[in-house]
Design a protein around this nucleic acid. Sequence first.
DNA 1: GAAACGAATGAAATCGTTTTCATACTTATA
DNA 2: TATAAGTATGAAAACGATTTCATTCGTTTC
Lengths: 339, 339
Amino acid sequence: MATIEDVAKLTGLSRTTVSRVINNHPYVSEEKRKLVLEAMEKLGYVPNSSARSLRNQKTSILALFIPRITNPFFSELVEATEIAAAEYGYQLIICQTRYSPEKELNYMNLLKTKQVDGVILASIQNEWKKLKPFLQYGPIVLCNEFDDRANVPTVRLDQVYGGYIATKHLLEQGHTKIAYCSGGYRSNVAKSREIGFKKALAEYKVSFHEQYAFRDAFHIADGKRVFQKMMELSERPTAVFTGSDEVAAGIISEAVKCGYRIPEDLAVVGFDNQAITELTNPTITTVHQPVKQMAQKAVDVIVEKIQTKKYETKEIYEFPLQLIVRASTLGSKLHQREA
Amino acid sequence: MATIEDVAKLTGLSRTTVSRVINNHPYVSEEKRKLVLEAMEKLGYVPNSSARSLRNQKTSILALFIPRITNPFFSELVEATEIAAAEYGYQLIICQTRYSPEKELNYMNLLKTKQVDGVILASIQNEWKKLKPFLQYGPIVLCNEFDDRANVPTVRLDQVYGGYIATKHLLEQGHTKIAYCSGGYRSNVAKSREIGFKKALAEYKVSFHEQYAFRDAFHIADGKRVFQKMMELSERPTAVFTGSDEVAAGIISEAVKCGYRIPEDLAVVGFDNQAITELTNPTITTVHQPVKQMAQKAVDVIVEKIQTKKYETKEIYEFPLQLIVRASTLGSKLHQREA
DNA sequence: GAAACGAATGAAATCGTTTTCATACTTATA
DNA sequence: TATAAGTATGAAAACGATTTCATTCGTTTC
C-alpha cells in the first residue's frame, strides 16, 4: 500500500507537490508533474479514500432509502439512481427499510456519522419531525415519496393525476362499482392517488363505499387475497384500481383461476408499467411513471445541495404520469352493453 | 459537529478516555463512563466514520457487483446480501457493471482506494487475470458466477445439475427437439448449464443441433426474438430450455400471440423461479435457486476473509438447485401421444 | 515495609490526505 | 534598477478518531 509519502520520497519532492499533481492543481512544472506520474505508476499508488474523506469532509457516497429492492418499481429507481450518481462520481449505498421506522432511523445515522454526503428518501417510514433533525448533518432529498411538512427539495410524480386518469378510464368504460387498492396507509403517494381516484368518481357522480377499499396491498399475494375478499362482498365490484402492477397481476391470476374473465367480469388497472404488464393474459392497463427522469433529477438536486450546503429549501419538481391502456380494461361487459 | 475533543473538553477528560468509553474498552471508572456518556448525549456527538476508517483501516462497506439490478434474480440477490451485510454492521455499495468490462475494472478501484473492505462478484466481465491483481488490496469473493482459475472463495449453485434436471424433465415428457437459450457467452453459469443440458441429452441419446442454440437471450424482448427465430427453422423445436424466467415469459408471450399453445405446441422451462412464473398463463416450469442462502454464505465468508486477511484461498461452497414443475411443460402433445 | 501488580488516566504518535503559509526564484512593469 | 507580480516548491497544520506508552495511585504479597 504505497502512500503519498512514498511517492514524495521516490521523486525527491514533497507531499504537497504530489498532492498538487493528483488534484490537477496549478503551479507544478511539467517536469515534476511527469516525474510524479511516473512514480505513482511505478508504485501502483492510488489515493486512500478514507484519508481524503476525512480531510475533505466528503465521502462521495449517497444513501438511497427504499422499502425493499425486489419491488420492480424500486429496482428501476435504484438502477437509474446508481447510474446518475456514478456520472457525478458518487457511489450509492442501498438502505432497505423494509417498512420499519426503526430501521429507517438507524440508517439515518449514516448521515450523522458522515458516512454519506446525502440521503435520498424514496420512501418515508417516520414522521417528518423525527427525520428533520438529521438535516443539520447533511442534505435530504425526497424522491417519489413526499411530505407537505418537509422543508426539503422534493422530486415527485403527480400521483393525484395518476389516480385520476386511471379511474376516469374505468369510469369511461361504464364502471360504477370500482374497488380501490393501495399499499400503505402512511404513504402520501398512496393518499394522493386516492384523492385522484375519488376526484374522478365525484366527477362522474359515482359514490364510493369504504368496503371497496383495500389499503394494505403490496405484493402479488396481497392481490390474490384482495380478490378473495372482493368475492365475499354482497355487491361485487366490476373494476378495480390498484397501486401496483404486482397487485394487479395477483388479482388477475386469482380471478382467472376462479373462472373469472378479465376484463369482462372484472376490469383491472395497475400502476408502474412494469414488464409484467405485457406478459400476463390479458395484458394489464397501467400508469407509466417516468422513473429515470425522477431519479436523475433527484441526483442532480442532491449534488447541488451538497455543494451549496443549503439543505432547508422547499423546492418541488413534479413529473407527469401517463395512462397505458391494455387488455385488462378494454371491452368489458359493461362497455359492450352500452355499445 | 461535535468531535471527540469537544466531549473530552466538556468532561475535563482526555480523548483517550472518551475513546475508551465509545469502544467499550476496559479500565474506565464507572463514574467517568457516565460522565462521558452524558456529555456525548448532550453534544449529540457521534464518531466520524471517515476518521475511524482512516485510523482503523476499515470502512465497514462491501461492494456487490451485478450486471443490472432490474433483473429480478439480481434484485433478490441484492436484497439478501444487504440484509446479511447489515447483520454484520456492513453497508452495501451497488456496482452495476451493465456487462461492461471497463465499468467492472473501474468499480474495482473501490477496493484499491480502500473505499470498501471487500468485493463480492456476482457477475464477472473480465478475465480473472485482470481481476486478480486487486487481491493485494482486499478480499474478493465470487458469488453465483465463478471461474476455475480464480483462487478465491466461491459461493455458487450447481448449475450443471440445474441444466440437467430441467432438460431431463423435458426429455421425460418425450421431447427430442429441444432448443437451448442462455444469457452470455462469457458466463460460466451459462456454460455449466449447457454442460448439464447436453449431459441430459446424451443420456437420452438425443443429439443436439447448433441451430437450436441461442446464447444471447437476457430479457423479455430477447425471448420474443428467439421465438421468432425458432419459427424460421425448417424443423422447429417442440421444447425450449431457457436461462431465465424473463426469457421464458418472453417466448411464451410471443408464442401465444402467434397462436401457439403452451405446452402442447411448445414446452418451455425457465430458470430462477421468479414471481412471474406463477402469473403467466400457463405458469412456468422453472429451476429454483436458493439465493438467500447463497448471499448469506457469501457475506459470512467475506467477513471472515476481512478478519483473517487471507484472501487467496480456493474454497468452494455449493448449494443445490431444485426443479419446480408447472404448467408450461406438463401435458404436452408428445406426452399425451405416448400416454 | 518494600516490591510487585493492577486499575485508571493522559500525552502524543499515528492513519494518509489537503491546504495554508512561507519562501525562493523568475519575469514583467514603472 | 527597484518593485511588483507571478510561478514553483516545501514545512507543518489540519481533518477526527485510536492506540501505544508512560505515569500515577491504590492494593496485594512476601
